[in-house]
Design a protein around this nucleic acid. Structure first.
Lengths: 145, 145
DNA sequence: ATATAGTCTATAGGAATAGTAGACTATTTT
DNA sequence: AAAATAGTCTACTATTCCTATAGACTATAT
């Protein structure tokens, strides 16, 4: 399961994607519409800003907005920044890789290979989904066999 | 990432699978070979026993052993019992499903569909791997295109 | 009997998660 | 310039989960 923080980040970005090109959206609005605790959301938005996903405008009529087009933000990127490693065991991770103490030959270890393949499948899948895909109702029903 | 507990459970079971039909294996032996803290391993083995994966024999020459053939224990079953939900968001879970507060029509929600498909892929993958598969070096090199 | 080896109860430190409070700063409109 | 709006920053807290550990107890085999 993703952390609440990671989940909130995704929902906040989807909310902004839905209103792309409609001007800044207030923190309060996002918090209410997405059922996210306001103060918690503030912290997440600042992180999203530092990561280059969103920008903000202060004062009246201010709020947050997406910097890039929804099509250019995929779920792997979001997940990477707000959640731990994708691999299920340390030696199967890429970014957070740790050598396995149990192995003499890690390159022949079936346990590692198995978990590594699962990790890669997951990464590819998440990378293939962007925010625009998530806006359309029934996207999957319409695009899957 | 799986919890240490879940990882240890998998490595302990693989250790027992490697010695299937060779009589009971002592806690101490498994702990040393798999680099698992002994007392922690004790607790995990008791849980594995209650779940019906292993049995134990007391006294001299005692230890733990697998009840079923390694081929009959898949990784989905192990993971389910020692780690949280497979789905990345609550509404995409099966066992730990929670209704989404954001949705009016969950059946048309692309976010849910996406995470649900990923969950199902992961579950199918884990279910397809059994302990016997993990014993053979290079299993994946030999069986994947 | 005695050594061996699993079982049970209880506890505990620490990290991560999730959330809160309040003062402060920048911008826009009047 | 003043007032209202809205984001920013610092600090704090509560709770849960993870990862263990200690030690006394019980059952079995020889």
């Amino acid at each position: 399961m993703l952390s609440k923080k990671a989940q909130y980040a995704i929902y906040a970005l989807v909310n902004l994607a839905r209103k792309y090109n409609e001007g800044p959206v207030q923190i309060k609005t996002i918090a209410e519409e997405e059922h996210i605790p306001r103060k918690f959301l503030e912290a997440i938005l600042i992180e999203l800003k530092n990561l280059g996903f969103v920008n903000s405008k202060k004062g009246k009529g201010g709020g947050y907005y997406l910097i890039n087009h929804p099509e250019d933000i995929n779920l792997l990127t979001i997940t990477r920044n707000f959640n731990g490693p994708l691999g299920l065991i340390p030696c199967a991770c890429v970014v957070s890789y740790e050598r396995c103490e149990r192995c003499t030959d890690e390159d022949a270890c079936s346990i590692k290979m198995m978990f590594r393949e699962l990790r890669d499948t997951t990464a590819d899948y998440l990378e293939g989904i962007n925010l625009a895909n998530l806006l359309e109702d029934n996207y999957f029903l319409n695009n899957n066999p």
